[in-house]
Write a protein that binds this DNA or RNA. Sequence first.
DNA 1: GGATTAGTACTAAATAATTAGTATGCGACC
DNA 2: GGTCGCATACTAATTATTTAGTACTAATCC
Lengths: 127, 127
Amino acid sequence: MRPKSATLTEQELEIMKIVWARERVTVRDVYEDMLERRKIAYTTVMTMMKILAQKKYLRKTQEDRAYVYQPTKPKNQVIKGMVREFVNRVFNGSAEPLLVHLVEDRKLSGKDLEEISRMIREGRENG
Amino acid sequence: MRPKSATLTEQELEIMKIVWARERVTVRDVYEDMLERRKIAYTTVMTMMKILAQKKYLRKTQEDRAYVYQPTKPKNQVIKGMVREFVNRVFNGSAEPLLVHLVEDRKLSGKDLEEISRMIREGRENG
DNA sequence: GGATTAGTACTAAATAATTAGTATGCGACC
DNA sequence: GGTCGCATACTAATTATTTAGTACTAATCC
């Protein structure tokens, strides 16, 4: 009865970050990337990527010996979904309290906010 | 080897929200609150609260027949930890991209940002 | 051609998270 | 005093997540 994660799990995200950064990867590519940061088995990476393919986050195409994996959804879209899920779960959907936390935690300064609000004002053509 | 959650899990958070809102609760209080939103067993709530007590999020004191539970950590502090964990995991620690997503997703308007940045400017005594 | 290498599929085991059943005790009520 | 309701402790089952081993295949190397 445990609910399946509606978004990417921690390890899935780790892998997707690598895939998005390179666009076209083999299991080996991802494996070697991850190995630099921690001990992990090749087959573990393979299993995770198979799951990501099942979940439609990756598309695989046979190419020479190994499969080549590519993301099916743009990073932006997926991350936005994760943010939305987080805001819903933790803040019941409203973003202001999140913002307050970020500021209190010095993740954002008033300067950052002004900068971004200026960006918004200037980049508002299509609404 | 699956890593234990460093922060509150989904259901744990659900319960903690109720506890924070009331400050002093019994299992039954939480159970009835949750029942309004979904089907759940009394013992399930009890198990979760026992876990939260083990994890030091709750403190229980015998009182009459049932235990009374109280939060040990303020909501603000715990939520801040969750935000931090999320920003680290998803955005490698930097908050600006999160902000951009929030704005793109219409969770925040330029007006919201300006408002909050004004609040910061005015409320900056101790830094 | 046999050994080595790199890849995949299949299988499975460990742990975390979630849910809940059963047994048991204690006070209230009749 | 027996029964009922409510509380807890203990136990356990289910599912998701993470990790990886084993067997097999195909290409490569000597």
